[in-house]
């Protein structure tokens, strides 16, 4: 699975300019805590979160995550988007709440472990 397929199937809104949507997706992880993601998410996963703060970019980059997907129409702070572009971190958003988004991702075959 690649990011483009997720964007097409779930009508996700891609927020980072020039995002590489050919990137593979190995699974997903849900958390609003940075150190939890650092400790438990796996490379290539999409990270579903309510967090919009700048520090999510560093965490996604450190772990080599495929993309950050914000739920409930949350939007990153301007500085978060800028840092994300610099570090090649893809950020998307959806109007869905986390529960529904994760259900749909699961239906598409994504798993955490």
């Amino acid at each position: 699975m690649i990011l483009q397929q997720l964007v097409d199937s779930l009508s996700l809104e891609v927020l980072t300019e020039g995002a590489d949507l050919m990137r593979g997706v190995s699974g997903g992880y849900v958390s609003d805590m940075i150190s939890d993601v650092i400790g438990n998410a796996r490379e290539g996963q999409v990270w579903i979160t309510f967090q919009v703060h700048l520090n999510i970019v560093a965490a996604a980059s450190l772990k080599g995550l495929s993309a950050i997907i914000m739920v409930n129409n949350r939007r990153p702070l301007p500085e978060t988007l800028q840092r994300a572009s610099e570090e090649n971190v893809v950020i998307m958003t959806t109007s869905l709440p986390a529960f529904d988004l994760v259900g749909l991702l699961y239906d598409l075959g994504l798993r955490c472990r």
Partner: peptide
């Protein structure tokens, strides 16, 4: 905590 810190996992993450 609102910024996503405070899960008490930072030091254990370092050790690991």
């Amino acid at each position: 905590r609102e910024m996503g810190f405070g899960s008490g996992m930072g030091l254990p993450n370092i050790k690991k």
